[in-house]
Simulated assay, not measured.
Amino acid sequence: MTTYKEAGVDIDAANNALEKVKKHAKTTFNKHTLSDIGSFGGCFNFPSKDFSNPVLVSSVDGVGTKLLIANLANRHDTIGQCLVNHCVNDILVIGAKPLFFLDYFAAGKLDNDILDNVIKGFSIACKQNKCVLIGGETAEMPGFYDNKKYDVSGTVIGVVERNNMLSNRKTKKGDVLIGLPSNGLHTNGYSLARKVLLDKYKVGVNIDSLGCSVDEELLKIHKSYLNVLSPILDKPWLKALSHITGGGLIENTHRVLEKNQDVKINWSSWEWPNIFKLIQEEGNIKFDDMVRPFNLGIGMVLIINKTNLEELESYLDESNQVYHQIGEVI
């Protein structure tokens, strides 16, 4: 007699994992959370009285082949944070703040320690971004994934007042671009980075120019910009935000411009972090081929009315937020 466990799916192990998930998720719950982890659906009591004309904003994403670095290093505590922060930044571009987050975790063979670390990362980032880890799915898929491989995706739901949607604002020529620094690669460009670096640099071995090992550098947490930008989302001089992900600075910023507009970037206005210099040098990569896959040290771009530059600079200085004036709309 063949059992489901012998086929590669251990329901008892999954149930044990669920208890760990509940422990982390409950630390993110707030007064609007109506359901527990394990329900067929996550229930959230939307605070409609706090809004006059609310619009729900959603985004779904993954972390790409950054997962392969996590597997090589056997370190899984940053992946969950990266995923939540990436999703939160995407809806922030619309002007939305997160309400709740759902995850999907799939593996060839469920490793409860790996799952625990990933979910712990989700919960840390959810608390930092003031949203609820309201539910998710854990799938064991033998034969589809190798036993040590796993994949994750996440979905965030947020809200913004309709009259404060950044997507309704119009950029114009002369608007100024302000760049906020990234924390390394964030979650993009890993296929190229792996190809260039992993044949030469071993996991766990310090690289002088980085001050850490290649895996420590590549597993740095994707930064969330929610907390620093929330206080100025309703400022009329903030024309647009651009989250610099796959496609790089130029292509992502083009997504929030009006038709027939372009950006003029002063590429010397900030210094690339050493990881990008190392990738370019070791891979003998042309400048144009660095611009598209990597953020090159800029994780979020603010487009503002140039007459309000001093006000923004004053706010960022008071917030101890590093920034660079990197260009303009043309």
Rank of each mutant, 00 (worst) to 15 (best):
T138M: 15
P47N: 13
I79S: 10
K306G: 01
H86K: 15
N274Q: 13
F276D: 11
F276A: 09
V329I: 14
I94N: 15
I298K: 05
P181Y: 10
N266M: 04
G41P: 00
G135F: 02
R169W: 08
H24T: 01
P231Y: 04
L218V: 01
G42W: 05
D146Y: 11
G158F: 11
E313Q: 15
K223Q: 15
F29W: 12
S35K: 12
E310W: 00
G248R: 06
S191C: 03
S52H: 13
G179Y: 00
I124H: 13
V263K: 05
W237R: 02
D289E: 14
A107K: 05
G62P: 02
V205T: 14
D10W: 04
W237F: 15
L102A: 09
K49T: 08
D289I: 00
G246S: 15
S167G: 11
G211C: 12
Q128S: 14
I37L: 15
F40P: 06
N147M: 02
E310P: 00
H86F: 10
V329M: 10
L218F: 02
I326F: 06
K200N: 07
S242W: 02
I207S: 13
G38K: 08
C43A: 15
N129T: 08
N227C: 08
K127D: 12
H324I: 00
Y145R: 02
E140K: 06
T2I: 15
S269T: 01
S58K: 15
A125T: 06
P181I: 00
Q261T: 04
G121R: 03
G247I: 00
T78Y: 03
K200I: 10
L72W: 10
N168G: 05
V9S: 08
E271M: 07
V88A: 13
V196L: 03
L72C: 03
I326W: 06
K31L: 08
